[in-house]
Write a protein that binds this DNA or RNA. Structure first.
Lengths: 106, 106
DNA sequence: TTGACATGTGACTAGAAGGTCACATATTGT
DNA sequence: ACAATATGTGACCTTCTAGTCACATGTCAA
């Protein structure tokens, strides 16, 4: 399986995206901590974290019996650059920012 | 199915990403034109285009008996902003650009 | 050292997704 | 009109994936 395929497949699952959301708020979390926020069993969460790690979206560091998980934004940026060039980026990001502002004030 | 789920599911398939790549180079293509570049049958391509359209990654316009397909970068940018804030974006994009430059000169 | 804690592995099952086909509708040009 | 072209629908099968469980290894603290 190719590198980018791993990334996209990893992002395809809502549970895995939720895990990235949690790590986006604060990373360095353990499996047990991440599991406690979900209804799923520990094994399910472990499988998901493994998929994220193999995709490079999450990097880990072992600390004793714990395994700490960190978010890696690089694959996300590469994904972005695949279909949004530097020129288009200005327009799109401006448009998106405007849309967000309008939604906030409403 | 939620909006972002549709987007991520749509991006999960390599054929659909290839279709986006083709539309990134030049959009306004018809189903038949896109099919001619793939080994798959027309029905497979049609299914994929439908998934992309429902996700909002592709917008269409009918012109007589033809249906023209256009790339919409907005969902990609929203995906990006979910895990890369404005501050992190500077570091990550600089890092990615540097990496690309190094790969080009090698 | 021994019990509690944190993580890891392989097998299994139910459901989702990719791809094809027979069949159908709508539009164009001669 | 009519034949060729372009797109659309529903059923079907096969393959992939999410989730669980029994079982196992490694680490900490008293």
């Amino acid at each position: 399986m190719s590198d980018d395929d791993l990334v996209f497949k990893a992002l395809a699952d809502p549970t895995r995206r939720h895990l990235l959301d949690r790590l986006f708020v604060r990373d360095g979390r353990t499996l047990t901590e991440l599991e406690s926020e979900l209804t799923m069993t520990r094994f399910g969460v472990m499988k998901h974290l493994r998929v994220l790690e193999e995709a490079g979206l999450v990097v880990t560091r072992k600390s004793g019996r714990e395994k700490l998980h960190f978010l890696n934004p690089v694959p996300i940026r590469l994904l972005h650059d695949r279909w949004i060039d530097k020129y288009t980026e200005r327009h799109v990001s401006a448009l998106v920012d405007l849309k967000k502002e309008l939604e906030e004030t409403s």
